[in-house]
Amino acid sequence: MFEARLVQGSLLKKILEATKDLLTEATFDCSSTGMSLQAMDSSHVSLVSLMLRSDGFDAYRCDRNLSMGINLTSMTKIIKCSSNDDVVTIKADDNNPDTVTFMFESPNQEKVSDFEMKLMDLDTEHLGIPETDYSVVVKMPAQEFQRVCRDMSQIGESVTICCTKDGIRFSASGDLGTGNIKIAQSANVDKEEEAVVIEMQEAVTLTFALRYLNFFTRATSLSGQVSLSMSPEVPLVVEYKIADMGYMRYYLAPKIED
């Protein structure tokens, strides 16, 4: 028996929005720890890693580990049938292993809907991602990062990110010319969410495809802040924290000189 109840049901809409450009299907792994998902996009350039800890749900029960192969397009159709203020419960029954049920309850309990969705048999290949100490970790407002990625993609297809202790510089070049955006570390801020904080061991310069970074910024509504973790010649980690529950992380392989 698996049952996970989320009063803030709209969170699922935001999570699906944050995966839709990268994934069409994925396996949700459910255990007593929580629900997680790890999947690469079809070109194997980026990876989505979602963690929703069990203690972040309003009720959570998982008697035995369960892998649910989900067509995300179908799940999106079903989740769109919920209202933003609905309580969402995800249920899977051991006696009926080929389906998952989504139940939506209005706040006043007057409307209750349930949708049963067929699960898929997916070949999932989990990548082993080692714990890494990154050379640079930048925390900045998620909306600012979204704006930078959008603006840089007006200029070119890739962005070079150069991070020093003074700040972070984004540069792009293309047929029309070049663009640079430099953001300094905040001197002092009233609101933590508005801060730009750079933790640096060594300066790093890396180049990434903007197409993917723009896909990642679909997660902007999940969190006020985003963190960018970088080391020379390894994948970038873009993390959006999901308050009191976990995170949505994206990994992106760098562009490398041949």
Partner: peptide, 14 residues
């Protein structure tokens, strides 16, 4: 020009 690398070049597979 820099080429796009793949994640599988960095992380161990299944």
């Amino acid at each position: 020009k820099a080429g796009q690398s793949k994640l599988t070049a960095f992380f161990a597979g299944p």
